[in-house]
Design a protein around this nucleic acid. Structure first.
Lengths: 229, 229
DNA sequence: ATTTGTGAATTACTTCACAGCA
DNA sequence: TGCTGTGAAGTAATTCACAAAT
């Protein structure tokens, strides 16, 4: 049982397990093995068992896991209980897409407040949520008790927005700007830089013609494995 | 010098270094230390030196790196030379946002073809690029010599799209669907599941009231570090 | 008979610490 | 002197392999 430090990588896999388990629950499946879960989630079965073991023993030996029970445990572990509200700052292309995307899918987490500094956007709605002026950020976040936020503003504004969010009591931030953000103690910041991810992809392609790269020629490419969704 | 295996983590940092170096180049900076680079990129200086060392020795001892020279080397290593074209499949909220996002920023990589299976969208343009029917995918990708693609379609369609892309000669795919994709040898697939990332964030927030989580209470939160952009 | 849960072994990645060079 | 480049050391994460449980 888990008295060791929990790898961040394990935490980030839990929501994937959760999604698969909820699909299985809906399909009325009443038992699933770590091997089956592994096949559906795209990780190894040992990895799944190890990740779960950090938090306790949720399965039955010789049998497997109950999707309903395990998904409920995972939600509890992740803190996805009740109505988890998220603030979105920046209603540009990406922010708008994220808000609409969120509407369709997941019920676990809900974008419940959207802010933008552009007064032309204020008052309009995305996915049924009204865009508010950034000046109202702290007031609204405190009133709603929001603890999570998404930053989808240009790089130059990102740190200022992060500071406002942290001042308003936000404890976890998903940052889509390419800026390196300074966090304060008690706040977790995860950054995803989409254009940087895209550029890194190029490394795994073969040069179109001539001109080999430097040492990078032992670059390896998946041998029919499964990608980590 | 680099005869060891190159960590995937290092590859994914290179584009970040590249962005910082290009900013410095534009500002006319003619020398930068790994420490300065580290501060701007959000990693440690040793990490940067180690990452670069996998590919060669690009600096001058006692001095530092020339931003123009080093950014040129990094582009070469990553394969970001000439006109790197990317196909985008799926012109929904996220796909559209990515296409517009790409237009504004990076010149290194360019979305040069967009596909959607919805005939209402076909013929329209995003960021100056016409949306083509998915039936034309292989023909267009081969004609343009495209090696990289972005999948932004619903989960159920994702594997079929990936198969078509691989059949058309695409070697690296950035997958935004929550589906676990099977890749074939010679193709690299990187997946980003935005909703899953968002759910993982919840783990790092404190429970709003009552009901502690399971073993997850030794969850740690950054102590004023810097996030990895 | 089958599948979990887990220490041990392995592999991957990062940080240290300092020799080497301008 | 100052900063790079790099083996060695350390830490983190994954995989192995098998005992425990039903």
């Amino acid at each position: 049982m888990g008295k060791e430090r929990i790898p961040e990588a394990a935490i980030r896999r839990l929501p994937v397990y959760l999604r698969v388990l909820e699909e299985l629950s809906e399909d009325g499946v009443d038992v699933v093995s770590s091997a089956e879960l592994a096949a559906r989630a795209g990780f190894s079965s040992e990895q799944i068992r190890k990740d779960l073991a950090y938090f306790g023993a949720f399965g039955t030996r010789g049998v497997g896991y109950d999707p309903v029970v395990l998904s409920s445990k995972l939600k509890r572990i992740l803190g996805l209980t009740g109505d988890v509200k998220v603030a979105l700052v920046g209603a540009g292309n990406l922010g708008t897409a994220l808000a609409r995307h969120n509407l369709n899918r997941h019920k676990e987490v809900r974008i419940s407040a959207i802010f933008d500094r552009d007064w032309d956007k204020v008052g309009k709605s995305i996915a049924g949520v009204e865009i508010l002026p950034i000046e109202d950020l702290e007031k609204v976040i405190r009133a709603q008790g929001i603890k999570m936020a998404i930053i989808a503003v240009p790089a130059v504004e990102a740190q200022a927005v992060a500071d406002q969010l942290m001042a308003a009591g936000v404890e976890a931030i998903l940052n889509f700007s390419p800026a390196k953000l300074q966090s304060r103690p008690g706040t977790y910041i995860q950054s995803i830089d989409l254009m940087t991810e895209l550029q890194a992809l190029a490394y795994y392609t073969t040069p179109n013609s001539g001109s080999a790269r430097l040492a990078g020629d032992e670059r390896e490419v998946s041998e029919g494995e499964v990608s980590t969704v």
